[in-house]
Computed example of a mutant assay.
Amino acid sequence: MNKTIPVIDFQGFHEGNKIEREAVAKQFYDALDKVGCLYLKNYGFSPDFIDQVFAQSQVFFALPLEEKEQIAKDRYSPGVGYFRNPAKTKEVFGYIYERSADGANSDGAINSHPKNDWPVNLPQFRETILEFHQSCQELSWKLFQALAIALKIPETVLTDVISHKNSYVGLSHYFPITQPTQTGQTRFKAHYGSGTFGLIFQDECKGLEICTPDGEWIPVASIPGTVVVIMEDIIQRWTNDQLISTLHQVTIPEEEFYRTRSRYSIVFKVTPNEDAELRCLDVCVNENNPPKYSPISVKDYYKEWEQKQYG
Protein backbone atom coordinates (compact mmCIF):
# COMPACT_ATOMS: atom_id res chain seq x y z
CA MET A 1 0.00 0.00 0.00
CA ASN A 2 1.53 3.28 -1.10
CA LYS A 3 1.63 5.94 1.58
CA THR A 4 2.03 9.67 1.16
CA ILE A 5 3.79 12.00 3.56
CA PRO A 6 1.27 14.38 5.16
CA VAL A 7 1.60 18.15 4.81
CA ILE A 8 0.53 19.80 8.07
CA ASP A 9 -0.28 23.49 8.38
CA PHE A 10 1.35 24.60 11.64
CA GLN A 11 -0.24 28.04 11.64
CA GLY A 12 -3.04 26.88 13.95
CA PHE A 13 -0.51 25.74 16.53
CA HIS A 14 1.34 29.06 16.46
CA GLU A 15 -1.70 31.31 16.65
CA GLY A 16 -4.75 29.18 17.39
CA ASN A 17 -6.80 28.64 20.52
CA LYS A 18 -6.68 25.52 22.68
CA ILE A 19 -8.96 23.51 20.40
CA GLU A 20 -7.01 24.49 17.26
CA ARG A 21 -3.69 23.63 18.91
CA GLU A 22 -5.02 20.24 19.97
CA ALA A 23 -6.25 19.55 16.43
CA VAL A 24 -2.83 20.32 14.93
CA ALA A 25 -1.11 18.29 17.65
CA LYS A 26 -3.27 15.28 16.75
CA GLN A 27 -2.40 15.66 13.06
CA PHE A 28 1.26 15.87 14.03
CA TYR A 29 1.09 12.71 16.16
CA ASP A 30 -0.92 10.76 13.57
CA ALA A 31 1.68 11.55 10.90
CA LEU A 32 4.49 10.31 13.16
CA ASP A 33 2.50 7.19 13.99
CA LYS A 34 1.41 6.22 10.48
CA VAL A 35 4.36 7.44 8.37
CA GLY A 36 7.17 8.55 10.71
CA CYS A 37 7.70 11.73 8.71
CA LEU A 38 5.78 14.87 7.74
CA TYR A 39 6.04 18.23 6.05
CA LEU A 40 5.30 21.39 8.03
CA LYS A 41 4.15 24.56 6.31
CA ASN A 42 3.66 27.94 8.00
CA TYR A 43 6.19 26.77 10.56
CA GLY A 44 7.21 30.20 11.81
CA PHE A 45 9.89 31.70 9.58
CA SER A 46 9.89 32.75 5.97
CA PRO A 47 10.95 30.65 2.98
CA ASP A 48 12.93 33.72 1.83
CA PHE A 49 15.10 33.37 4.92
CA ILE A 50 15.69 29.69 4.15
CA ASP A 51 16.81 30.75 0.67
CA GLN A 52 19.36 33.03 2.36
CA VAL A 53 20.66 30.14 4.45
CA PHE A 54 21.08 27.98 1.35
CA ALA A 55 22.82 30.84 -0.42
CA GLN A 56 25.29 31.21 2.45
CA SER A 57 25.83 27.45 2.48
CA GLN A 58 26.74 27.50 -1.20
CA VAL A 59 29.08 30.45 -0.67
CA PHE A 60 30.86 28.57 2.12
CA PHE A 61 31.26 25.31 0.19
CA ALA A 62 32.54 27.22 -2.83
CA LEU A 63 35.56 28.38 -0.80
CA PRO A 64 38.95 26.83 -1.61
CA LEU A 65 39.47 23.53 0.20
CA GLU A 66 42.47 24.84 2.12
CA GLU A 67 40.36 27.69 3.50
CA LYS A 68 37.58 25.36 4.61
CA GLU A 69 40.08 23.01 6.22
CA GLN A 70 41.26 25.82 8.48
CA ILE A 71 38.07 25.19 10.47
CA ALA A 72 38.06 21.39 10.13
CA LYS A 73 36.50 19.48 12.99
CA ASP A 74 38.58 17.10 15.06
CA ARG A 75 38.05 14.39 17.65
CA TYR A 76 38.02 16.96 20.45
CA SER A 77 35.10 18.85 18.93
CA PRO A 78 32.87 16.26 17.25
CA GLY A 79 30.32 17.75 14.89
CA VAL A 80 31.92 21.20 14.89
CA GLY A 81 33.41 22.80 11.81
CA TYR A 82 34.22 21.44 8.37
CA PHE A 83 34.38 17.79 7.35
CA ARG A 84 34.88 16.09 3.98
CA ASN A 85 34.24 12.36 3.92
CA PRO A 86 37.06 10.06 2.75
CA ALA A 87 35.13 8.99 -0.36
CA LYS A 88 34.93 12.67 -1.34
CA THR A 89 31.21 12.37 -2.05
CA LYS A 90 30.06 14.83 0.60
CA GLU A 91 31.27 17.75 2.69
CA VAL A 92 29.65 19.16 5.83
CA PHE A 93 29.79 22.22 8.05
CA GLY A 94 28.53 21.65 11.59
CA TYR A 95 27.54 24.17 14.25
CA ILE A 96 26.78 23.14 17.83
CA TYR A 97 25.09 25.63 20.15
CA GLU A 98 27.43 27.47 22.48
CA ARG A 99 25.89 28.63 25.72
CA SER A 100 27.58 31.99 25.30
CA ALA A 101 26.56 32.43 21.64
CA ASP A 102 23.44 34.40 22.50
CA GLY A 103 24.78 35.93 25.71
CA ALA A 104 22.59 33.68 27.84
CA ASN A 105 23.19 30.76 30.17
CA SER A 106 26.80 31.75 30.79
CA ASP A 107 27.23 29.33 33.66
CA GLY A 108 29.90 26.80 34.51
CA ALA A 109 28.45 24.23 32.12
CA ILE A 110 29.65 26.28 29.18
CA ASN A 111 32.93 24.40 29.30
CA SER A 112 31.12 21.24 28.21
CA HIS A 113 30.06 22.89 24.98
CA PRO A 114 32.48 23.07 22.06
CA LYS A 115 33.66 26.33 20.60
CA ASN A 116 32.73 26.90 16.99
CA ASP A 117 35.15 28.28 14.44
CA TRP A 118 33.90 30.35 11.53
CA PRO A 119 35.30 31.26 8.10
CA VAL A 120 37.05 34.58 8.64
CA ASN A 121 36.03 36.17 5.35
CA LEU A 122 32.31 35.39 5.49
CA PRO A 123 30.82 37.50 8.31
CA GLN A 124 27.28 37.13 6.95
CA PHE A 125 27.64 33.36 7.06
CA ARG A 126 28.00 33.31 10.85
CA GLU A 127 25.17 35.80 11.36
CA THR A 128 22.83 33.79 9.12
CA ILE A 129 23.60 30.42 10.74
CA LEU A 130 23.08 31.79 14.24
CA GLU A 131 19.72 33.31 13.23
CA PHE A 132 18.72 30.05 11.57
CA HIS A 133 19.69 28.10 14.68
CA GLN A 134 17.58 30.34 16.91
CA SER A 135 14.56 30.04 14.61
CA CYS A 136 14.83 26.24 14.52
CA GLN A 137 15.27 26.15 18.29
CA GLU A 138 11.96 27.97 18.72
CA LEU A 139 10.25 25.66 16.24
CA SER A 140 11.57 22.53 17.92
CA TRP A 141 10.20 23.79 21.24
CA LYS A 142 6.73 23.90 19.68
CA LEU A 143 7.14 20.39 18.27
CA PHE A 144 7.79 19.09 21.76
CA GLN A 145 4.72 20.96 22.99
CA ALA A 146 2.64 19.43 20.19
CA LEU A 147 3.82 15.92 21.04
CA ALA A 148 3.04 16.47 24.73
CA ILE A 149 -0.46 17.74 23.93
CA ALA A 150 -1.10 14.71 21.71
CA LEU A 151 0.06 12.40 24.52
CA LYS A 152 -2.13 14.32 26.99
CA ILE A 153 0.73 15.21 29.32
CA PRO A 154 1.82 18.68 30.52
CA GLU A 155 3.78 20.52 27.82
CA THR A 156 6.67 21.13 30.21
CA VAL A 157 7.33 17.41 30.67
CA LEU A 158 9.23 17.41 27.37
CA THR A 159 10.33 21.03 27.03
CA ASP A 160 12.04 20.93 30.44
CA VAL A 161 14.27 18.15 29.12
CA ILE A 162 15.59 20.32 26.25
CA SER A 163 16.02 23.54 28.23
CA HIS A 164 19.81 23.59 27.76
CA LYS A 165 19.40 23.95 23.98
CA ASN A 166 21.74 21.09 23.09
CA SER A 167 21.34 21.39 19.35
CA TYR A 168 23.12 21.05 16.04
CA VAL A 169 22.96 22.67 12.61
CA GLY A 170 24.48 20.72 9.74
CA LEU A 171 25.01 22.09 6.23
CA SER A 172 25.66 19.38 3.65
CA HIS A 173 26.96 19.53 0.10
CA TYR A 174 26.79 16.33 -1.94
CA PHE A 175 29.17 16.51 -4.91
CA PRO A 176 27.90 15.95 -8.46
CA ILE A 177 28.09 12.32 -9.59
CA THR A 178 29.88 11.98 -12.89
CA GLN A 179 31.13 8.38 -12.69
CA PRO A 180 29.10 5.15 -13.12
CA THR A 181 27.48 3.95 -9.89
CA GLN A 182 26.83 0.48 -8.51
CA THR A 183 23.40 -1.02 -7.88
CA GLY A 184 22.16 0.03 -4.47
CA GLN A 185 24.78 2.76 -4.07
CA THR A 186 23.59 5.75 -2.04
CA ARG A 187 24.76 9.24 -1.29
CA PHE A 188 24.04 8.61 2.41
CA LYS A 189 23.35 5.07 3.65
CA ALA A 190 20.14 4.09 5.42
CA HIS A 191 20.30 5.13 9.07
CA TYR A 192 18.31 6.13 12.14
CA GLY A 193 18.81 9.42 13.96
CA SER A 194 20.08 9.29 17.53
CA GLY A 195 18.14 12.30 18.80
CA THR A 196 14.55 13.49 19.01
CA PHE A 197 13.32 15.26 15.87
CA GLY A 198 15.34 16.02 12.76
CA LEU A 199 14.33 19.11 10.77
CA ILE A 200 15.46 18.81 7.16
CA PHE A 201 15.51 21.59 4.59
CA GLN A 202 16.45 20.43 1.10
CA ASP A 203 16.96 21.89 -2.33
CA GLU A 204 15.12 20.71 -5.44
CA CYS A 205 17.53 17.83 -6.10
CA LYS A 206 16.03 14.41 -5.41
CA GLY A 207 17.32 11.63 -3.20
CA LEU A 208 15.87 11.73 0.33
CA GLU A 209 13.76 8.67 1.17
CA ILE A 210 12.13 7.34 4.32
CA CYS A 211 11.06 3.83 5.27
CA THR A 212 7.52 3.79 6.65
CA PRO A 213 6.53 1.64 9.66
CA ASP A 214 5.20 -0.88 7.11
CA GLY A 215 8.65 -1.23 5.56
CA GLU A 216 7.90 0.73 2.39
CA TRP A 217 10.55 3.11 1.03
CA ILE A 218 9.01 6.33 -0.27
CA PRO A 219 10.64 9.50 -1.65
CA VAL A 220 10.60 12.74 0.32
CA ALA A 221 10.31 15.29 -2.45
CA SER A 222 11.21 18.93 -1.95
CA ILE A 223 8.06 21.01 -1.40
CA PRO A 224 8.70 24.77 -1.41
CA GLY A 225 7.75 26.52 1.82
CA THR A 226 7.91 23.39 3.96
CA VAL A 227 10.33 21.70 6.34
CA VAL A 228 10.59 17.92 6.66
CA VAL A 229 10.28 16.50 10.19
CA ILE A 230 11.74 13.03 10.79
CA MET A 231 11.39 11.13 14.06
CA GLU A 232 14.49 9.77 15.80
CA ASP A 233 15.43 7.14 18.38
CA ILE A 234 14.81 9.09 21.61
CA ILE A 235 11.16 9.65 20.66
CA GLN A 236 10.78 5.88 20.24
CA ARG A 237 12.37 5.33 23.64
CA TRP A 238 10.21 7.96 25.37
CA THR A 239 7.02 6.52 23.90
CA ASN A 240 7.97 2.91 24.69
CA ASP A 241 7.79 1.95 21.00
CA GLN A 242 4.40 3.61 20.61
CA LEU A 243 6.13 5.68 17.94
CA ILE A 244 8.94 4.14 15.89
CA SER A 245 12.16 5.88 14.81
CA THR A 246 12.29 6.55 11.07
CA LEU A 247 14.87 4.86 8.87
CA HIS A 248 15.97 7.21 6.10
CA GLN A 249 18.62 7.54 3.38
CA VAL A 250 19.77 9.70 0.49
CA THR A 251 19.68 7.78 -2.77
CA ILE A 252 21.22 8.61 -6.14
CA PRO A 253 18.57 9.89 -8.58
CA GLU A 254 18.11 8.02 -11.82
CA GLU A 255 17.84 11.22 -13.86
CA GLU A 256 21.19 12.48 -15.10
CA PHE A 257 19.98 16.06 -14.60
CA TYR A 258 19.91 15.52 -10.83
CA ARG A 259 22.83 13.09 -10.57
CA THR A 260 25.30 15.50 -12.13
CA ARG A 261 24.31 18.47 -9.97
CA SER A 262 25.38 19.36 -6.46
CA ARG A 263 22.81 18.56 -3.79
CA TYR A 264 22.47 20.82 -0.73
CA SER A 265 20.58 20.13 2.48
CA ILE A 266 20.38 21.69 5.93
CA VAL A 267 19.46 19.82 9.10
CA PHE A 268 18.67 20.87 12.64
CA LYS A 269 18.65 18.47 15.57
CA VAL A 270 17.99 18.93 19.26
CA THR A 271 18.97 16.50 22.02
CA PRO A 272 18.03 16.38 25.72
CA ASN A 273 20.00 18.08 28.45
CA GLU A 274 23.21 16.32 29.39
CA ASP A 275 22.04 15.82 32.99
CA ALA A 276 18.64 14.44 31.97
CA GLU A 277 17.51 10.86 32.44
CA LEU A 278 15.81 9.11 29.54
CA ARG A 279 12.91 6.91 30.61
CA CYS A 280 9.68 5.68 29.10
CA LEU A 281 6.88 8.17 29.70
CA ASP A 282 4.36 6.95 32.26
CA VAL A 283 1.50 7.59 29.84
CA CYS A 284 3.05 5.05 27.43
CA VAL A 285 3.39 2.28 30.02
CA ASN A 286 0.74 -0.08 31.40
CA GLU A 287 0.28 -3.69 32.49
CA ASN A 288 -0.03 -4.89 28.92
CA ASN A 289 2.85 -2.74 27.70
CA PRO A 290 5.59 -2.64 30.35
CA PRO A 291 8.70 -0.49 29.84
CA LYS A 292 10.89 -1.83 27.05
CA TYR A 293 13.82 0.41 28.03
CA SER A 294 15.49 0.92 31.39
CA PRO A 295 16.13 4.50 32.55
CA ILE A 296 19.48 5.78 31.31
CA SER A 297 21.44 9.02 31.45
CA VAL A 298 21.78 10.99 28.23
CA LYS A 299 25.55 10.52 28.34
CA ASP A 300 25.30 6.73 28.68
CA TYR A 301 22.58 6.57 26.05
CA TYR A 302 24.86 8.17 23.48
CA LYS A 303 27.73 5.89 24.46
CA GLU A 304 25.50 2.87 23.86
CA TRP A 305 24.12 4.30 20.63
CA GLU A 306 27.58 4.94 19.20
CA GLN A 307 28.73 1.47 20.24
CA LYS A 308 25.83 -0.11 18.34
CA GLN A 309 26.48 2.05 15.26
CA TYR A 310 30.25 1.92 15.08
CA GLY A 311 31.30 -1.00 17.30
Results as ranks from 00 to 15, higher is better:
residue 162 I to Q: 06
residue 28 F to E: 03
residue 223 I to H: 08
residue 190 A to K: 03
residue 65 L to H: 07
residue 60 F to S: 02
residue 287 E to D: 15
residue 249 Q to K: 03
residue 291 P to V: 00
residue 118 W to F: 04
residue 110 I to G: 10
residue 46 S to K: 08
residue 299 K to C: 11
residue 274 E to C: 14
residue 51 D to S: 13
residue 112 S to R: 12
residue 243 L to K: 02
residue 296 I to S: 03
residue 75 R to K: 10
residue 64 P to K: 01
residue 189 K to D: 14
residue 142 K to G: 05
residue 290 P to K: 01
residue 165 K to Q: 15
residue 13 F to C: 03
residue 15 E to P: 09
residue 268 F to M: 07
residue 302 Y to N: 09
residue 18 K to N: 13
residue 205 C to L: 13
residue 280 C to Q: 04
residue 56 Q to A: 11
residue 243 L to M: 06
residue 127 E to F: 10
residue 181 T to N: 05
residue 34 K to A: 07
residue 167 S to P: 06
residue 277 E to F: 13
residue 273 N to F: 11
residue 222 S to D: 14
residue 160 D to W: 04
residue 184 G to V: 07
residue 72 A to Q: 08
residue 126 R to Q: 15
residue 123 P to C: 04
residue 200 I to F: 11
residue 57 S to V: 07
residue 187 R to S: 04
residue 189 K to H: 15
residue 130 L to E: 12
residue 65 L to Y: 08
residue 33 D to L: 14
residue 230 I to S: 11
residue 49 F to R: 01
residue 147 L to G: 02
residue 74 D to R: 05
residue 138 E to W: 11
residue 102 D to K: 08
residue 269 K to T: 13
residue 232 E to K: 06
residue 9 D to A: 06
residue 73 K to N: 15
residue 259 R to A: 08
residue 41 K to V: 11
residue 131 E to G: 14
residue 114 P to S: 08
residue 256 E to F: 10
residue 61 F to M: 02
residue 11 Q to A: 09
residue 91 E to P: 01
residue 276 A to W: 05
residue 176 P to Q: 03
residue 134 Q to I: 12
residue 99 R to A: 07
residue 193 G to P: 12
residue 247 L to V: 01
residue 52 Q to R: 09
residue 210 I to V: 15
residue 53 V to L: 06
residue 70 Q to K: 14
residue 10 F to L: 04
residue 118 W to M: 05
residue 246 T to C: 10
residue 191 H to R: 09
residue 113 H to A: 09
residue 5 I to W: 01
residue 117 D to L: 15
residue 71 I to G: 01
residue 309 Q to E: 11
residue 191 H to G: 06
residue 287 E to I: 03
residue 209 E to V: 00
residue 270 V to H: 09
residue 98 E to M: 02
residue 296 I to E: 05
residue 174 Y to S: 07
residue 205 C to M: 12
residue 55 A to E: 13
residue 304 E to Y: 08
residue 150 A to G: 03
residue 188 F to K: 13
